[in-house]
Each structure stands twice: as structure tokens, then as C-alpha cells.
């Protein structure tokens, strides 16, 4: 068998839905690709876009963001804010010359273990097709990271947030 590229993916999950979906995929013994490593947060609304950039610039080939379905957020509506940030983030990535498809947003309720598993496998395949990112594997990684962080931080904050 020829060596195939095995992407490394960081997944952000919310404590209430998608992390429990991952748990359910486990208890139901659903098999999926082992390339995603998960970070638990309380809510997808906690997702700071710089986390994603940090992951990508530290060697991840893709980032999967997961949260409760719209309308089912445990914190009422914070996942909409995650959605908004996600859309903005994809624009920023495109601006940096990185395929926006490297970041994926998946809604999965605590009952959707199967969905979590299939979406994960599908995403791994998508990233496999895109190939390694190799961002930050150069020496001036820190430089790039600083540029990126400032480009996000310096954005008008109104653009980042959903009006109350």
C-alpha cells in the first residue's frame, strides 16, 4: 500500500452537544477516521478565531468546529455567534491564501453520534484531498502567527459580532 497523507485535524467541540455526540459515537462503537483530536469547550461561542489560526499555524491541516444545532444552544443562541465568526474566519483564511475548506463547521446534537462520525470521516477525506498545509513548518512561523493575530484583532470588532 502506498504511503497516503494522514492529515492532523484539531476539533473544537461544545460540552453539551457535539462532545456528547462524540461520546455517543463511542458508546455506539461507530468507527471513524482517527485523525481528529478534540478540544472541549463549554460552547461553540467560546471559539476565538485565533484558536483556529493557531492550530493551523502550529501544524494542523484542518480544523473542525462543532456545536449544537441552531436553536438548540445550551446558552440560548451563542452558536449563532460561532457561525458568524466561522464565516468571517473563512474570509480571513482566503485572504491569507489558505483554502477556506480547511475549516469546517458541523452542527451535531447529543443524539447525533452517527452524524459526528460520518462528518469527521468526510472531513478527513476532504483535507486529505487538499494535501498537507505546511503552514508554520517554515522557520518564520512566529512571524506569520503574529501577522495573522493582528489581522484578526485589528478588524473592527463590530464586524466580528452579532448585534445584540
Amino acid at each position: 500500500m502506498s504511503e497516503q497523507f494522514e492529515p492532523t485535524i484539531i476539533g473544537f467541540t461544545c460540552n453539551w452537544c457535539s462532545y456528547r455526540a462524540a461520546d455517543l459515537a463511542g458508546t455506539s462503537r461507530m468507527k471513524y477516521a482517527p485523525n481528529v483530536r478534540l478540544i472541549r469547550m463549554m460552547c461553540s461561542g467560546r471559539l476565538d478565531p485565533t484558536f483556529v489560526l493557531r492550530a493551523l499555524s502550529s501544524g494542523a491541516d484542518g480544523v473542525m468546529i462543532t456545536g449544537c444545532h441552531p436553536g438548540e444552544c445550551h446558552y440560548i443562541e451563542q452558536n449563532y455567534k460561532a457561525l458568524r465568526r466561522f464565516l468571517l474566519l473563512r474570509r480571513v483564511l482566503a485572504g491569507l491564501g489558505i483554502e477556506p475548506e480547511r475549516v469546517k463547521l458541523v452542527w451535531a446534537s447529543a443524539a447525533e453520534g452517527a452524524r459526528f462520525a460520518s462528518e469527521t470521516t468526510a472531513f478527513v477525506e476532504e483535507i486529505r484531498k487538499l494535501g498537507p498545509l505546511n503552514w508554520g513548518k517554515t522557520d518564520d512561523r512566529q512571524q506569520t502567527m503574529d501577522d495573522v493575530e493582528s489581522s484578526v484583532v485589528n478588524r473592527p470588532s463590530s464586524e466580528m459580532e452579532v448585534p445584540a
Binding site: H74, Q78, S157
Partner: peptide, 8 residues
């Protein structure tokens, strides 16, 4: 503790 404000 959702953290949305932290991120924002």
C-alpha cells in the same frame, strides 16, 4: 460560563 464574551 459559555465563554462567548471571552472570545469576543
Amino acid at each position: 460560563g459559555c465563554g462567548t464574551c471571552v472570545a469576543a
